[in-house]
């Protein structure tokens, strides 16, 4: 069983953390992952930086630019992660834009992920239908779960379609926005969370975008299996460095 599915079957609300690989320093990747696991994070999204991250706000854009300047590449990331499964047990997901994966070769990329022990991928600009027609068989061959996004504007019909293609969880984008744009949830979000909850989808949902503290984490996980924090974590690392990851995680979980 894929580590993601196993984790999703646990009777608890999940905290997933996104960070940009190669940021703040090129070789922080492994220690950040180990620290996150040690402090009780359930799942990690390792951001493969891209020059033109369309769905991201300034915080993740800037961390991506810096990571690329630091020398991060697909090869370097795979090399940093080659022994990660000797020390880390929680599910690991690579999140990145499609072009770097496409240039590496989608099959070669998936194969490498399997060798390392990556459990899934999130690729915001790979559309569901293209995945379904061209790449699903490859992902499945290498035991990778592909995670799709839905937003408040996604129709019920399309959500059902995405649910039928998914085999892990659905990434619920909390509002129509790029990453890091929102703070806190209003009535509109609550209604959307309730609407999706009532659909009784096959795949559990994890909410992302706009989760930054204990309050928003608690709110989101009332309706969903878990929540993802990205920009707020990257911001914390920017301001406080990587030494105080424990303070940040504790502030979310307590």
């Amino acid at each position: 069983m894929n580590r993601i599915n196993k984790k999703l079957s646990e009777d608890k609300k999940l905290l997933s953390i996104y960070f940009t690989a190669g940021y703040p320093s090129l070789n922080d990747t492994v220690s950040i992952i180990e620290d996150l696991e040690k402090n009780g994070v359930d799942m990690i999204e390792i951001g493969l930086p891209f020059s033109d991250p369309l769905a991201d706000g300034p915080t993740i854009q800037e961390s991506s630019t810096k990571a690329l300047k630091n020398g991060m590449t697909t090869e370097v990331l795979f090399d940093q992660l080659k022994d990660i499964r000797k020390t880390v047990n929680i599910p690991l997901i690579i999140m990145g834009y499609f072009n770097p994966m496409f240039q590496y070769g989608v099959e070669a990329f998936c194969k490498k992920c399997q060798e390392i022990g990556i459990d899934g991928l999130i690729i915001p600009d790979l559309p569901v239908d293209v995945y379904h027609e061209e790449y699903q068989a490859i992902f499945e061959k290498y035991g990778l779960i592909n995670v799709f996004l839905i937003t408040p504007q996604t129709s019920d019909e399309r959500i059902r379609y995405i649910d039928s293609i998914s085999n892990g969880f659905i990434y619920m984008v909390s509002s129509a926005s790029t990453t890091g744009a929102q703070s806190g949830f209003g009535d509109e979000q609550t209604q959307y969370f309730e609407r999706i909850d009532k659909m009784k989808l096959n795949n559990p949902q994890i909410i992302g975008f706009g989760i930054s503290n204990n309050e928003t984490f608690t709110q989101a996980t009332q309706y969903a299996k878990g929540a993802i924090i990205g920009s707020a974590f990257v911001k914390h690392v920017t301001q406080e460095g990587t030494a105080s990851i424990d303070t940040f995680i504790k502030s979310i979980l307590n």
Partner: peptide, 11 residues
């Protein structure tokens, strides 16, 4: 060609 867009732009 095609439409390689994040889901947020799909509608």
């Amino acid at each position: 060609g095609g439409a390689f867009i994040p889901e947020m732009l799909y509608p």
